[in-house]
Design a protein around this nucleic acid. Structure first.
Lengths: 354, 354
DNA sequence: CTGTTAGCGCTTTCAC
DNA sequence: GTGAAAGCGCTAACAG
């Protein structure tokens, strides 16, 4: 048996079955209003030929492609792959296919990818913008004839609906919790970042420590393990060492934990640690790591649902201008109190992993 | 400004620019053999209209879609998202788009998804078969007119090229290492599984312990944390408790670690632990976890490269039968010796995370 | 119930 | 250099 056969077409099926093309068309679209005998014969030919309708031809007729695009920085990042999974599920439930493209947070790649999806005539688009302020992206998105939903980060001053976690409040929640524990010198460890989410978190941290009459200790020099280690070493040996660390990002939390462990600094004894974003082994490490948890799946699900809602709003067959009402969906975050902040959960840690 | 405009077509561009459709076609395909003045005018119209060629129409003309499909169990699994990322990179380098669909290891969903990709006329397909023995899938794949590459798991008795890690040798490497440490009662902890990879690993374990004249201690009852805890508790309190555990899967390793920690069993003092598949915090846990590491990125990259190689083999425009030469690419795995198996790495653990 | 036919948007000869 | 026209595979009137 050889592979690489020519791809059969509808008219070939029609010819072999001795019927017209419209009959075959009816068969593959449900088989209504077709004589049972004819139907069976056509179906047999379809199977024997391994015929599958060419979507391109349908699309050309102006139908929905039943395809949606997702533009994210990376597929390997648990936050985005979690979102992607939730979005896929909704897409699948709506009989649509999801095309995921990645940007590595590069604005050029980002616009290129939006363009690729446009060529593919996706019915809708979900995007986590590399830079919320990117004017070129805003214009590209605004000019699109399909619904767009932003996740994780909004598109500044545009009518694009966005679904995000409340990063400001999340950081506030974290900082306030550390304050409640009695820590007075809370350091915020973060990368110098143009990312909307990080800026919001920094801002939430600053407002909260300042409101408590304490001074903000912000270190934005963190990039990788080495820089984290350096930042922690420097601050600990300074005249005014922190008694708690709030890290704004998953990887930073882990680097910080490793560095503290490396220097044999007791957690939370000498320095408490509270991170942003939960991760699988946060409860397994010793001490277990307290974090702010984002509703990842919910972000993905709501974004996808909002997108489908917008798609159905548009009258079938005739696309027309809809009032550009801006929608912002903000989701709340949750504090997962474990040991590293000074809390001692009652339940055995392992129970969390069941 | 209103969204939801009608999508402009090539002939609209032609009309506004006062040229024929073929001229516009030439412009969007590089602009060769077009008068510079005309070219500039047409380009201006294209920009002002925001025209983007409709891929469907091109595809209909019989061209490559420049689209590839990837069928995997889950996108949230680090192994598969790692593969996906590598495949995406190769696809992008070859100017192609990757469509990822997930099956949750369900054979029905799997065939459905292959069909969806077929409708989309993907140029090639990469798949991690839910079940290597699935005859229906084998037939579906065999009947495809496009190249197919299997990853992680082969498609039994088919001509489908596959790229996999050598799971048998990986397990052998792991077991032998534990034997070299002097452990005599090595338990293999695993899920009762129909998965090819798991069966291979079990087999590698068994052959190795038996070759050493020891008896195999296989527990296939592991499903989640609870069952892992139960399995470990039972075996430890038996008359013949294990002195080492080889777990065949990432999540099982973590469950086992948590359970041992829960029972305050010293690792590796009383029971050593060696897992399959590396994970981010394996070196950060105390003790750090030794594992067998698979070349994830390489699997993805080689699969994608092999796929593109096959695609280019087929003479352009005329698809014909190629000799069904089966290719199997087997990649070797690597032992990452950390503390849990009894080794004490010289380097400070943290250095690994830089 | 079923066949005929006119395009959907694009590329590509083939003339001019 | 440029345009007219045919046709890719399919669907949707419109006749029969």
């Amino acid at each position: 048996m050889s592979r690489k056969k020519a791809i059969p077409t509808l008219s070939e099926v029609a010819k072999r079955a001795g019927v017209g093309t419209s009959t075959v068309s009816r068969v593959i679209n449900g088989g209504h209003r077709v004589d049972p005998v004819t139907l069976a014969r056509v179906r047999r030919v379809i199977d024997s030929l391994g015929y599958v309708p060419n979507l391109a031809a349908r699309i050309l007729k102006g139908y929905r492609t039943r395809t949606m695009g997702l533009v994210i920085p990376s597929i390997a990042d648990p936050f985005f792959s979690g979102c992607a999974e939730a979005i896929q599920a909704v897409a699948h439930a709506n009989d649509s296919l999801l095309i995921v493209v990645t940007t590595q947070n590069d604005p050029r790649t980002e616009i290129e990818n939006v363009d690729v999806l446009r060529r593919h005539r996706v019915d809708g688009l979900i995007i986590a913008p590399a830079n919320s302020q990117n004017e070129a992206l805003r214009q590209t998105l605004e000019a699109l004839s399909i619904p767009v939903v932003a996740i994780d980060r909004p598109v500044a001053s545009s009518s694009v609906t966005s679904v995000l976690a409340n990063n400001f409040c999340g950081a506030k929640l974290a900082t306030q919790h550390l304050l409640d524990h009695g820590y007075k010198r809370i350091m915020c460890l973060t990368g110098e970042s143009t990312l909307y989410t990080i800026r919001e978190r920094i801002s939430g941290y600053q407002k909260t420590v300042e409101a408590a009459g304490l001074k903000s200790m912000l270190d934005t020099s963190v990039k990788d393990y080495k820089s984290t280690e350096y930042a922690i070493e420097t601050s600990l040996s300074s005249s005014d060492p922190p008694d708690a660390i709030f890290s704004t990002k998953n990887s930073t939390t882990i680097y910080a934990f490793e560095a503290l462990q490396h220097f044999k600094v007791p957690i939370p004894g000498r320095v408490a640690l509270l991170g942003y974003d939960d991760f699988e082994l946060a409860s397994t490490l010793r001490p277990s790591i307290s974090v702010i948890e984002q509703p990842i799946e919910e972000i993905g699900r709501l974004a996808a649902e909002s997108l489908f809602a917008q798609m159905l709003e548009i009258p079938q067959g005739k696309r027309r201008a809809t009032p550009a009402r801006r929608r912002q969906i903000q989701l709340e975050t949750r504090l997962v109190a474990r040991s590293s902040c000074g809390c001692s959960p009652r339940l055995p840690e392992a129970a969390e992993s069941q």
